[in-house]
Each structure stands twice: as structure tokens, then as C-alpha cells.
Design a binder for these strands. Structure first.
Length: 128
DNA sequence: GCATTGACGAAGG
DNA sequence: CCCTTCGCCAATG
């Protein structure tokens, strides 16, 4: 058997679509478990779900969080820098920071203060 | 059906 | 230290 195109190889890797449960649904469940006063990152969630490089999908999953129930505290999810990268998608954008501060999290210049301390890692908290 | 975008992140220059 | 590129993959044009 000859391989003409050696550029692209087969991907035995399991894609998100192969999973029995919706990737988005899993994301929502995890985010709902983030306790008040704590935050997590898109990447951490992606990693916990076994798709370490699919952090973007986690962010994309947040698009439905405004409509679904029970409510998903999307404001507790920020990027790996602790920046409120998704604030512009809130209504109004300042809403994200307000919610966080209401939970005892300080935000300065769209960045969470003491992010490392407030960080909630599903890997550790929910077990590997 | 291909090209671009995107609430990310790691790696390379 | 800042900028670019790449991987990831669903949604959108």
C-alpha cells in the first residue's frame, strides 16, 4: 500500500464529536461546580475533559450559557492569564466584573487579583 | 465546500 | 518581552 500523501497522517485521536456526551454539556457541568469566590480557566476545563488543546471550544461553548438552565456561572471562567477575556460577551460587558466582585474576587484592569490563589483546578478538585 | 473567525494556549523567533 | 504561528474544531460567510 502506497502512501501518496505523507503530509497528512491518520488521526487515531478521539475527536470531540466521538464522545458519547456533548462536549458542551460537559463544560457546563464543570463550570456549574466552580464554587463562589473561585475561578478556573478554559484550558483547565479542556484538559480535564481530555482535550487539552481544545480550550477554544470551551470558550465557544459559553455562547449558550445565556439561554440554558440551570444557570452557568460563565463569569468564573477566564483565560490562563486571569484576564476577563470574555467580558465583552456579557450584558453589559461590565457585568462579568461586577459578578466576580460580588463574590469577593478583585478585578483590576480586567485581570483577577491573586488569580493563582483563586484558581480552581478541576483536575485536583474533581480528581484525575 | 473552502476560507475565515474565535470567550485559548503553547511554542518559537 | 512582544509578536507571530500553529494546533484545536465548531460555527459562520
Amino acid at each position: 500500500m502506497k502512501k501518496k500523501t505523507a503530509v497528512k497522517e491518520e488521526k487515531p485521536r478521539e475527536t470531540l464529536a466521538d464522545r458519547h456526551y456533548s462536549f458542551f454539556q460537559n463544560v457546563y457541568e464543570i463550570v456549574r461546580q466552580v464554587p463562589k469566590g473561585r475561578v478556573t480557566s478554559y484550558g483547565a476545563i479542556a484538559k480535564y475533559l481530555g482535550s487539552g488543546s481544545s480550550a477554544r471550544m470551551v470558550g465557544w461553548a459559553m455562547h449558550g450559557t445565556g439561554d440554558i438552565k440551570p444557570k452557568v456561572p460563565a463569569h468564573r471562567v477566564v483565560n490562563r492569564n486571569g484576564m476577563l477575556s470574555g467580558k465583552v460577551h456579557f450584558n453589559p460587558p461590565s457585568r462579568m466584573q461586577e459578578l466576580l466582585e460580588k463574590e469577593g474576587i478583585k478585578v483590576v484592569k480586567d485581570t483577577i487579583v491573586d488569580f493563582r490563589k483563586k484558581f480552581w483546578d478541576p483536575m485536583e478538585e474533581l480528581g484525575l
